[in-house]
């Protein structure tokens, strides 16, 4: 299968690969996919107390399109508010990377990863609040 130039670029120069401290109260971690399916994506977002995404890191086990999708969303979410990030859809990712139909699920995974990371952050914050009160 031929890859688009953008997929190749993200694959060869992935942005924001790495690991953040999961225990940091300002870090939300989303781990989606399954090894048996051949794709696992972990997205971590560092979110300020007022809801701004300050930094993002990913690690992905999957095909080139999955790696490119996760790399791309780390670029997109940085500087956005949590609410803005929640509106990023897999269609935006698939369009930007010109993914063929069989690779759409790789972009779905990227969308799921953003949502899971934000949810994790919100859960942590709620737990902290409950503890404080």
């Amino acid at each position: 299968m031929a890859y688009s130039d953008k997929v190749i670029d993200h694959y060869e120069n992935p942005r924001n690969v790495g690991t953040m401290d999961k225990e940091d109260p300002n870090v939300g971690t989303g781990l989606v996919g399954a090894p048996a399916c051949g794709d696992v994506m972990r997205l971590q977002l560092k979110i300020s107390d007022d809801g701004l995404i300050e930094d993002a890191r990913f690690k992905t086990f999957g095909c080139g399109s999955a790696i490119a999708s996760s790399s791309l969303v780390t670029e997109w979410v940085k500087g956005k508010t949590v609410d803005q990030a929640m509106t990023i859809s897999n269609k935006d990712v698939a369009r930007e990377l010109s993914l063929p139909p069989v690779k759409i699920h790789c972009s779905v995974l990227a969308e799921d990863a953003i949502k899971a990371a934000i949810e994790d952050f919100k859960k942590k914050r709620a737990a902290r609040k409950a503890q404080a009160s």
Partner: peptide, 8 residues
């Protein structure tokens, strides 16, 4: 593997 959450 440096990019793989599973390897880590």
């Amino acid at each position: 593997r440096d990019m793989s959450p599973l390897y880590e």
